[in-house]
Design a protein around this nucleic acid. Structure first.
Length: 419
DNA sequence: AAGCTCGGCAACCGCAATATG
DNA sequence: TCATATTGCGGTTGCCGAGCT
C-alpha cells in the first residue's frame, strides 16, 4: 500500500514562484485547461510538481480571485460561517466569492482569531472564554471540549440547514400556491416530522449531549452568571466584550423590534416557527430560555419536524439547497458583500436595532465612523473608536443571534435534542 | 545603520476522500 | 471489491518586510 509522494522527485523546484513560472502556468491553463495536474508540469515545461501547480493556480493565478483587504462584511460572514462550520475553510470560501480557502484561513489565523480572543471569545467554540473554561473543566480535558465544539458545530450546521430548508420550501409554496401554503406546509411538516425522527433514530449520532445553543455563543447558562466576572457592574471600561446580560438584552429587543415591524426579514426568519402559530410565544420562549437556561434550536426542529432527510438524500440537490440555505442564513450579508463593500455592516435594520437598545447609542455606528475619520488622533476619536468597536461587537453578536433567532424554540420547552 | 522581533502570507506537507481501472 | 492514482483540504512552516530598539 501507500502512495508515492508527489513532490519527492529530484529536480523539482520548490518555494516561491517566479513571474516566469506564473506566466508559463497561466499560459498553459488558458490554452489547454489544467486537465490532469500531475501531467501538467511536464506539458507546461515547469519544474514543479502538479500539486504545487494546482495550489499556485487555485490560490493565486486564478482570474476570479479577489485580493486585498477583507471588508467588514466579509469579516462578519467569515465569523458567522466559522461559528457554524468550524475550520471548514473550503466550505466557507464557497460563500465568499473570489476568496480562496487559503486566504480565508490565513486571515482567520492572523486577524479574526486574535480579535475574538481579545474580545474574550474563544475562537474555537465562539463562546465567551469563561464559559469555555467551565466547559473545559467540566470536560476535564481539552479533547473533550474540542469534540464538544465539533459536535456543536455539526449541530449548528444541521439545525441552520434544516431551518433554511424550511424557509425555501415554504417560500416556494407561497409562490406557487399562496392560499394553500399554510395547510400544505403543515401537511408537509407532519410528514417530515416522521422522517426526521426516523433519521434521528437510525443515525449513529446520539446527540443527547447538551449541545447548548445553536451558536454556542448563546449557550451560556445563567448558572454562570452569579459568579460571572464580567457582570455589567464590574466590567472594565475597556472591556468591550459583550457581557452575557447585554447579549440577552439584544435578543429581547431585536426580537420585539422584528415582531412589531412584521418586516420581510421577520417573515423569512420566522418561517420555520410559524407552524407553531404563536409568534408571541416564540418571543417569550426566547426570553425565557435566555434567562433560564440553555437555548435549544434543536428542540424546535423536533417539534416542527422539518428535515432534509439529511445524508440520505445525497443527490445534487443538496448543493443547491445548501447554497440557498447559506444565502438565507446570512440574511443577504454575503450577497451584499458580493455586490460591493458599500454596505459594510450587515443589514441596516440590525444596526438600527442595536442603536435603539444601546441606550444613548443612537446612530453611533455611522456617526462614530464619521467622527473617527474626521478627528483622527483626538481623545474623542479613541472613545468613539471604542464605541465603534463595541458597536461592531454588538453587530457581530446580533448577527450570530440573528441566526439563532431563525430557530424557533420549542413551545413546550422540550429540551430533547434532535441530533 | 544594524540587528532583532513580529506579523502576514505564500507555499508545503500529509492525510482523507474520491475517482479510476 | 480492491489497489492505486488523483484531487481536495486543513494544519503548519518558513520567508519576507515592517517596525522597533
Amino acid at each position: 500500500m501507500g502512495r508515492s509522494p508527489c513532490c519527492d522527485k529530484v529536480g523539482l523546484k520548490k518555494g516561491p514562484w517566479t513571474p516566469e513560472e506564473d506566466q508559463m502556468l497561466l499560459a498553459y491553463i488558458e490554452e489547454h485547461g489544467h486537465g490532469s495536474w500531475r501531467a501538467l508540469p511536464s506539458k507546461a515545461g515547469l519544474q514543479r510538481c502538479g500539486k504545487s501547480c494546482r495550489l499556485r493556480w487555485t490560490n493565486y493565478l486564478r482570474p476570479d480571485i479577489k485580493r486585498g483587504k477583507f471588508s467588514l462584511q466579509e469579516e462578519q460572514t467569515i465569523i458567522q460561517l466559522h461559528a457554524l462550520l468550524g475550520n471548514r475553510w473550503s466550505a466557507i470560501a464557497t460563500h465568499l466569492q473570489k476568496r480562496t480557502d487559503n486566504e480565508i484561513k490565513n486571515y482567520w489565523n492572523t486577524h479574526l482569531k486574535k480579535r475574538l480572543t481579545k474580545m474574550g471569545i474563544d475562537p474555537v467554540t465562539h463562546k465567551p472564554k469563561n464559559d469555555a473554561l467551565l466547559t473545559t473543566q467540566a470536560g476535564s480535558n481539552y479533547s473533550s471540549s474540542k469534540s464538544a465544539a465539533n459536535l456543536s458545530h455539526m449541530a449548528q450546521w444541521e439545525s441552520a440547514r434544516l431551518e433554511a430548508e424550511a424557509r425555501l420550501v415554504r417560500q416556494s409554496k407561497l409562490r406557487s400556491h399562496p392560499l394553500l401554503a399554510t395547510s400544505a406546509a403543515a401537511a408537509q411538516l407532519a410528514t417530515r416530522s416522521t422522517s426526521i425522527k426516523s433519521w434521528s433514530a437510525s443515525s449513529s449520532i446520539n446527540v443527547h449531549v447538551d449541545l447548548e445553543s445553536p451558536t454556542s455563543t448563546l449557550s451560556t447558562t445563567t448558572a454562570a452568571l452569579p459568579g460571572n466576572p464580567i457582570s455589567s457592574s464590574d466590567r472594565h471600561e475597556d472591556d468591550r466584550s459583550p457581557s452575557i446580560p447585554h447579549m440577552f438584552e439584544f435578543i429581547k429587543d431585536v426580537s420585539h423590534h422584528q415582531h412589531d415591524d412584521a418586516s420581510d426579514d421577520w417573515t423569512v426568519c420566522q418561517l420555520a416557527a410559524d407552524h407553531h402559530s404563536a409568534i408571541n410565544d416564540h418571543h417569550h420562549n426566547h426570553i425565557a430560555v435566555a434567562s433560564g437556561g440553555t437555548i435549544s434550536c434543536c428542540s424546535s426542529m423536533e417539534a416542527g419536524g422539518w428535515t432534509l432527510n439529511n445524508k440520505e438524500s445525497s443527490n445534487g440537490d443538496d448543493d443547491v439547497a445548501e447554497e440557498g440555505f447559506i444565502s438565507l442564513l446570512l440574511c443577504d450579508s454575503t450577497a451584499a458583500a458580493a455586490g460591493g463593500d458599500h454596505q459594510e455592516h450587515g443589514s441596516s435594520s440590525e444596526v438600527n436595532n442595536n442603536s435603539e437598545i444601546s441606550g444613548g447609542g443612537g446612530n453611533e455606528k455611522n456617526s462614530n465612523k464619521d467622527s473617527s475619520e474626521n478627528n483622527s488622533g483626538s481623545t474623542m476619536t479613541t472613545t468613539n473608536e471604542h464605541e465603534h468597536e463595541y458597536c461592531e461587537d454588538k453587530n457581530y453578536w446580533n448577527s450570530i443571534l440573528n441566526l439563532v433567532d431563525t430557530s424557533s424554540p420549542s413551545p413546550d420547552g422540550d429540551d430533547t435534542h434532535m441530533f
